[in-house]
């Protein structure tokens, strides 16, 4: 030991102080990483929210709208009477399966059919028929475009006026978070059609 120089205790103290400083810096770095991760996650959640618009875009006849596993092109909305003289609102159009396999859940699972609203009148859920033989649409094959009719029963007190038809689709995820398998998840609105029904047969 050199007289007047720092003693062994001094070096031990310095080493401990350095160790403590490294520990504190490590904690601060971890905290900073956590903070940055939280900021990035919040920012990404906002980006994800912006990707799905709050209000579905307006669509027109002849314009395709996604209904999830298939794409629907509305062509005509008519007010018609059935064989019993009861009024029906009939939306006709073309539908095509855009997946790689036969689909039974054409409008998603659980099924979410287009919703029709007009003023304060509530319309019951519609039924979907094939135009060519008026049979129920039971399934949709890939690459076969079918003409369909979506038929609503009209409440007796409803006067013909503009109606709004809202379409929605399930979100497809190739690898879900549970099994990493492809899944159809929550519904989101994809389009709204505003039209006045034509007088049909």
């Amino acid at each position: 030991m050199v007289d007047g120089g720092p003693g062994i205790r001094f070096y031990r103290m310095m080493a401990q102080s350095l160790k403590s400083a490294v520990g504190r810096i490590r904690i601060r770095i971890i905290a900073a990483i956590g903070l940055v991760a939280a900021i990035v996650l919040t920012w990404w959640m906002k980006v994800e929210d912006a990707r799905i618009p709050d209000a579905p875009p307006p669509i027109a006849f002849g314009q395709p709208v996604s209904v999830g596993r298939s794409v629907f092109i509305p062509e005509k909305l008519a007010l018609a009477n059935d064989e019993n003289g009861e009024r029906k609102l009939v939306l006709t159009g073309l539908i095509e399966n855009v997946t790689g396999s036969t689909q039974v859940a054409v409008f998603g699972f659980p099924e979410m059919l287009p919703v029709l609203s007009s003023g304060d009148t509530e319309f019951p859920a519609p039924r979907v028929n094939l135009v060519r033989d008026d049979d129920f649409l039971k399934q949709l094959e890939p690459r076969i475009r079918e003409a369909i009719a979506i038929i609503w029963d009209v409440p007796p007190d409803w006067q013909a006026q503009d109606v709004l038809i809202a379409f929605s689709a399930q979100q497809f995820k190739l690898n879900d978070n549970l099994y990493s398998k492809s899944s159809w998840l929550q519904f989101h609105p994809t389009g709204r059609l505003t039209a006045r029904p034509e007088q049909g047969a």
Binding site: S101, T102, K138, Q139
Partner: peptide, 16 residues
């Protein structure tokens, strides 16, 4: 039964 089409698409038996 399913039919594996020439394009690789899967066709189920017709429910109709």
């Amino acid at each position: 039964a399913i039919w594996l089409g020439a394009t690789g698409r899967q066709y189920s038996q017709s429910a109709r």
